[in-house]
Amino acid sequence: MGFSVRELYKKYGEKVVVDHLSFQMDGPGVYALLGTNGAGKTTSIRMILNMLVKDGGTVEWNGGPLTLQTCNVGYLPEERGLYPKNTLMDQLLYFASLRGVPRAEAKKRIAYWGERLEATEYLFPPAERGRAAKPKKADQLSKGNQQKIQLLLSLISDPELLILDEPLSGLDPVNSDIFKSVIHEEISKGKYLIMSSHQMATIEEFCTDLTIMNRSKTVLQGNLAEIKKSYGRINLFVKAEQDIRAEIEAAGVTILSDVGFSYQCRVTGEAQANGLLKTLVEKGVTLIAFELREPSLHEIFVEKVGDAHEEQ
């Protein structure tokens, strides 16, 4: 079992939009594809799924080329929609039939996911005033509820490989949590997931490995925990009951921002942080918080993409 992308390459005219992207997943898990707008994430996904003709590179699933026939893929694209005038149930059954899911099984799955996504009332509308329920059409649903149905479409075939492009964009916190719980469920089932998002906190919550792209190129790649470890604990958050700016600066620590008596700082390493802590204790400063931590994905992303921008 395994999924790999090797030397994926695409150009439009003279403009290279994906420049030799390679990554692989040896087992089930979540892989994140991150990047700025126009970095080439969606183009890469489209090439992975054979929607776009590759100018170079290969995509493999279990050692062979990934095609509609060799891999059961579920895909929630960034640009998503539904047939506005068709009923939800018709559309879901249509997608199920395209994926070879028997009708009875499809209905079971729709009922299950409908309940999980809290969309049962739209899929199976209750009878009103003794009259048979009128099936709901897509244009009768709010954007968030339409997104639930779109996620259901991508799950209807019980895919082995699930690709989610900006899955949480435009969702309110309640619906975001519902989506997250569904993603957790898929992870727990041992599925392969590829996620692309601008919401770093979400990616950090799910992914184990990642690639950061900027302007078609890979600027950072690897296991998230190892990447963070490689940066070391250089982020220091200090909160005190008094102004300690002078003490921090005297210890050679860089202040990134300060609000009130809260300071976001950058240290060179644990020794420097310990030195500052010792000084503050000796001076009798009342500390509310003193936290030394690894950089967040957001910070790594901004740093990497920022570096690449500067280089260019």
Binding site: R46, L49, M51, L68, V73, G74, Y75, L76, P77, E79, R80, G81, L82, Y83, P84, F95, L98, R99, Q150, L153, S154, S157
Partner: peptide
Amino acid sequence: SKLVESLMVSV
């Protein structure tokens, strides 16, 4: 209807 990408992984 922006369904094209969802459809292209099915057919």
